[in-house]
Nucleic acid binder design. Structure first.
Lengths: 331, 331
DNA sequence: GGCACACTGGAAACCGTTTTCCAGGAGGTC
DNA sequence: GACCTCCTGGAAAACGGTTTCCAGTGTGCC
């Protein structure tokens, strides 16, 4: 491995000069020496050792992003947004996936702390478990005490800058829109009760129905993924005319379940989701959903993490109800 | 930031002892001291500085994965497979996305080299551009000369261990299967001509048709994504009874285009894709495609990169034709 | 009791940079 | 011409660990 010293020797200059030429410094270096150093570096194929730079500079140009599951398009979109923003800032990205294990999330924060990454982004729903959340907060505090910056996409439960999708309000608005189409008997494929995002969407939906004086929905819990939606759809009571799956991939699972059973959507039952996943936009029937600007949210979270605000900032992101063919008007 | 020295001081031991206790060493440390060190580390909230460790050890526990586009489920699945394998090995992952710019790929290899990552995985099709490929090979050689390991998922064009999907053979087999259903006039939504994966699939398909004595397909080039499929489908000649999109997301785009125009699939035209993307498995009509074990391929690429084989190994991965409802029998 | 040896702990060199500090020379001003 | 300042280059001290020696202790064996 060729080092800066090799380059300096070959160019006949000191280490300091070589460093100044190659790795950006405020100091000027004379044209002649500069050229010699550059030529030497090129000839030798020098690549700075970033570990050494990080150590010497006390700051790295890496950020960490922790997501639940990269193969879930929801997280892929958020991560992509953040990564584009990072690329613009000249930052490298370490991605960790927890596969929905909160302990993994804590472990990642510890590791990213050890890496002294510039910022950590925690992307995805918090869980309703004070113990886990407490330990995560602790680990995060340790990191931030050392000068680390952090932000979160999800719920404002960690005491760090947060991009918070308006899950309750979005679900409520969806409920009102669906009620406006004449639906009165609803079911909710609610995901896991401990997942805050799922719980908020469910609660927002149910709350709006209540305000409208409609009967409470039939709530069915299950996993937060496609198969969870598929399974939950099997248990929906027959009298429901409209089913709200708390995310799009669950909704797609539900649609598959109905299709297999010969239940027509939207003729026999209406189905709605949440997120407006781009990959699913060509699904048939087209999914009614609540659109979230996922890429922007990811990018915004990175901005917040890097930003200098002395106060913790929490940004609500509104969802937009998008009515498509998976729901019908009842009348 | 609390350092090992702080811990050593607090525990009243030397730096060496603290290091041996906390960061794994072959050397034994007495129980009493060991306990003191551990307690001190815990009290102070010590986290080893990985940059310093990497520097001192001369080896890092990070690997790099470079993909074209993380929001494309094809890459998400491959990356996820590799990341799971990495997690098992206790490795951290840096992910870079090129957004399909080959220059970015070269730049990433340089950066990952600077990071002295343990291995680099280049995931995705090569491009048919000798200049770009040459420069990438150069950068890769530089990295490997410094002791780096590399592997590739795609085509064996870089002189590194490669997991190579059998694009030609898979497409040929698909062509034979479709011909077996009675189709004779084909179109191929072929993607960009310079993208080797796309070109191979197109060539394999056309080659098989030729062997069968069928007319050459109508080949339409365009982008390798959903919108590319959508646009290309508009240009298909009216006499084609079966359209092969060289990947699944393009096929979905084509299906959308047909749906909008009121062309029924498969009644009016049959459509097939390639990859068998999991996220699309609930698409209607269900997509005929060639299944690739993407997660396994990603994991296998990591194994190869980490492996000790002195020879460059190239592993062909066969695709499996999956006939589903997006194609019909002609008779 | 003496000796070799295994074992544990510490001092210090080293990993590859950055950056502070110092020295020397050029240029400007009075 | 003397003095000051500005600018450029180099020596060396960090940065936070790991690891090689080296020294001291206790043990087993003859």
């Amino acid at each position: 491995m060729v080092t800066l010293e090799d380059v300096a020797k070959q160019a006949g200059v000191s280490l300091a000069t070589a460093s100044r030429v190659l790795n950006g410094s405020t100091r000027q270096v004379g044209a002649a020496l500069r050229a010699r150093v550059e030529r030497a570096a090129d000839e030798l194929g020098y690549r700075a050792n970033i570990a050494a730079q990080t150590l010497a500079r006390g700051a790295s140009n890496v950020i960490g992003i922790v997501v639940h599951d990269l193969t879930d398009p929801y997280f892929a979109a958020l991560a992509d947004g953040a990564m584009r923003a990072a690329a613009i800032e000249g930052l490298l990205v370490m991605v960790g996936t927890t596969h929905r294990d909160p302990e993994q999330e804590i472990a990642y924060v510890a590791t990213l702390n050890a890496q002294r990454v510039r910022a950590v982004l925690l992307v995805g729903s918090r869980v309703a478990d004070a113990g886990v959340t407490g330990r995560l907060r602790e680990e995060l505090a340790r990191y931030r005490n050392g000068g680390g910056r952090a932000a979160c996409v999800g719920q404002d439960l960690l005491g760090v800058d947060t991009v918070a999708p308006a899950n309750r309000e979005g679900a409520a608005e969806l409920a009102r829109a669906l009620a406006g189409l004449g639906h009165t008997r609803f079911a909710v494929l609610a995901g896991p009760p401990h997942l805050v995002t799922a719980a908020d969407r469910c609660a927002g939906f149910a709350g709006a129905l209540k305000e409208l004086g409609l009967p409470a929905p039939h709530v069915i819990h299950g996993p937060f993924d496609r198969d969870g939606g598929y399974a939950a759809a099997q248990q929906v009571r027959g009298d429901a005319t409209c089913v709200f799956a708390v995310n799009d991939v669950m909704a797609v699972g539900a649609l598959a379940a109905y299709r297999e059973r010969g239940v027509r959507v939207p003729e026999d039952v209406s189905v709605a989701g949440f997120d407006d996943i781009v990959t699913l936009r060509d699904h048939v029937p087209a999914l009614t959903t609540v659109r979230l600007p996922l890429k922007d949210m990811g990018a915004r979270a990175l901005e917040l993490a890097l930003g200098e605000a002395e106060m913790v900032v929490v940004e609500q992101v509104a969802g937009e109800v998008v009515l498509r063919e998976s729901v019908r008007r009842m009348t």
